[in-house]
């Protein structure tokens, strides 16, 4: 097993509060909900499990060494499916047999296609990497049954990715620059040009 401190990315001298913060940040980043419709969903679940184990181990170690007062309370990793009308399709998706899942779904008569059908179609397309198609199916599933937490989570996750605001990643505001940034940049560039020749690649 890896060093639990390395897993959380903190030194062994970190305070309880620092460990808790590191754990929370990682849990936010690797939460299975973020990867539910990703081709790497299983790897994200493993990673979350590793983080939970590391956090629990550190908590136990510190509790036994009487250096900490907090109790462990790690995030759950399992994504439990609600009652389903398509158990075979879900199994195929879980096992990466996307063509088989698609074939079964296409075999369902158009009149019997409910919100779960659209959601599962979205899952197949998303795991295949066809994100535009996936979005349309998730949107339809959510519109047909907005009260279902599974459909809502898939739709909201997709919207977060389409806005490039991924939990745990610092991507918001990237690339933007104010007028002051431009002026400063031009001044710096001017200084550099005066001092030496350009060496851009």
């Amino acid at each position: 097993m890896k060093n639990p401190y390395e897993v959380l990315g903190v030194p062994e001298t970190a305070t309880d509060e620092e460990i808790k913060t590191a754990y929370r940040n990682l849990a936010k980043k690797y939460h299975p909900d973020n990867y539910n419709d990703s081709p790497l969903a299983d790897l994200a679940e493993e990673k979350m499990k590793e983080i939970n184990e590391a956090y629990d181990t550190i908590c136990d170690m510190r509790k036994n060494g009487s250096s900490s007062s907090y109790t462990s309370g790690s995030y759950g990793t399992g994504s439990s499916y609600a009652k389903t009308s398509y158990p075979d399709v879900r199994n195929y998706i879980m096992n990466g047999r996307l063509d088989d899942a698609m074939e079964l779904l296409n075999g369902v008569a158009e009149t019997s296609r409910d919100a779960e059908w659209y959601f599962l179609m979205g899952m197949v397309f998303s795991r295949k990497g066809w994100s535009d198609q996936a979005y349309q199916y998730f949107q339809r599933a959510y519109q047909m049954n907005p009260g279902n937490p599974e459909f809502k989570a898939a739709f909201e996750n997709m919207n977060a990715r389409r806005a490039y605001s991924n939990p745990g990643y610092n991507t918001t505001g990237a690339g933007g620059c104010s007028m002051c940034d431009i002026c400063t940049g031009m001044l710096c560039a001017n200084c550099l040009c005066n001092c030496c020749g350009g060496n851009g690649c």
Partner: peptide
């Protein structure tokens, strides 16, 4: 954005 998010994730 979606493609970049997936790459980043």
């Amino acid at each position: 954005n979606n493609a970049l998010s997936e790459a980043l994730l």
